[in-house]
Design a protein around this nucleic acid. Structure first.
Lengths: 232, 232
DNA sequence: GCGCAAGAATCATCCGACCACTGGTGTCCC
DNA sequence: GGGACACCAGTGGTCGGATGATTCTTGCGC
């Protein structure tokens, strides 16, 4: 067991024991290093690791704090994992994303607010001008897509689900997706699918929302497999 | 962007570009530090972080290697996250686990081999003597439960799904679960549910397997909520 | 009361040194 | 010749100190 592991476990226990709560500040490096019986260098390695895991947050000139411990934030490193496998398990990642997002749509159908429904509608209408192309059209459409799916996920009432969906639909994953969609010229179809999802949500129909979402993501996956060996 | 982030991204790119493959060895610290333009200390912080994320693996006196990059291994840190939230999001975690395991059962129903089917059956029969109690009964039942669910997950054909289920059903999560099951005296019911899942799998009936699994996990969740404020 | 500058506190980074462990190599003994 | 052992070079592990960058606080002057 290395010193750094001592640090990680030590801080982990301090959090689990309640000695450290979300947002709370850690002792200064020198002091904490002495408490845990390690040098400042080793302490920093541990703190850095927890920082990358989204548990701690250090601010130069200020101090080190425990994060809010939001699930979404803690699940963020998972996106890294997904990216790392890039081509390899793309099919498996998408299959899982389809399952999770379908469930999200089902849950959101009975929970979404009129306000968010209107926001989503505005989003989709704002996408229409870009369907024909133009400067930054690609980038804009992707942003809108991300925002649309995020609105749905946010109304599931399950933060863990939200975090996982975010991790599974990382930016690099979406980049690949949209490149394929554009190259295959199915942007209009994708837009129609979004609208179908929206209508199901407006109707507060869980099953319809689930099916529409599943259908949408299946279509997207199909486009992706059109270029199975697309270079990066 | 900190130096450590440079290191993490640098190594990540080396892997994505194919400069580094699974199992391959990294340059020595001093050299790699010069390549990335950082000090050895900063390099170590980055390497340590990737090590905790399951991407790298360092062996003193030998060198630093890229891991197999197995999904299960990379998703392991997620268990840490789940543990960290312990009580907080237990409901949400279980809801998600139910969704994933149900899907796993559905997939496994059409893929499971006769051999694994027999293994699962033997497992369940081996559990029966412990239903009445006895030394280590609690521990043994939990082991069997884990093994049973693992057999199912392993036949989904989706490594990402397997990894996520593992992460969601961490050991501490299961500890709590089984403690509740025992205290509520529903071990027999749980066993019957396992048998029902097994029968559905043997019948190669995906929908039945999915429903049986969902029913099983719903029952388990119900037992958990019986002691909503159970101390640790 | 307000703005600003000086200072303290804190993390960020680097450097050099030494320790601990591993793997390989060569030697010695049987 | 074969095997056990000792040695050695290479590598990560840890440490302490020094300097820079950033933030927050304090107190001064207006």
């Amino acid at each position: 067991m290395s010193r750094t592991d001592d640090v990680v476990n030590g801080i982990k226990h301090m959090i689990l024991n309640g000695d450290l709560g979300p947002g709370e500040r850690l002792p200064v490096e020198k002091e904490l290093a002495e408490t845990l019986g390690v040098s400042r260098g080793s302490l920093r390695e541990g703190v850095r690791a927890l920082s990358i895991l989204g548990v701690l947050n250090t601010r130069q000139g200020d101090g080190t704090y425990v994060t809010s411990l939001d699930v979404a934030q803690l699940l963020a490193p998972m996106g890294f994992v997904v990216d790392l496998h890039g081509e390899g398990h793309a099919e498996n990642v998408h299959a899982l994303r389809r399952l999770l997002e379908s469930e999200a749509a089902r849950l959101a159908a009975v929970r979404i607010t009129d306000g968010s429904l209107a926001d989503a509608k505005a989003l989709l209408e704002g996408a229409e001008p870009f369907l024909e192309g133009g400067p930054d059209a690609h980038e804009r459409l992707m942003e809108i897509d991300i925002a649309f799916h995020r609105i749905i996920a946010s109304h599931t009432g399950n933060p863990v689900l939200i975090g996982m969906i975010e991790a599974l639909a990382s930016r690099t994953v979406r980049e690949r997706l949209w490149r394929s969609l554009r190259e295959e010229g199915v942007l209009h179809r994708t837009h129609e699918e979004h609208l179908a999802i929206w209508r199901a949500l407006r109707a507060r129909d869980p099953e319809a929302a689930r099916v529409r979402m599943a259908n949408h993501l299946l279509g997207v996956e199909e486009s992706l497999s059109y270029f199975p060996d697309a270079p990066d």
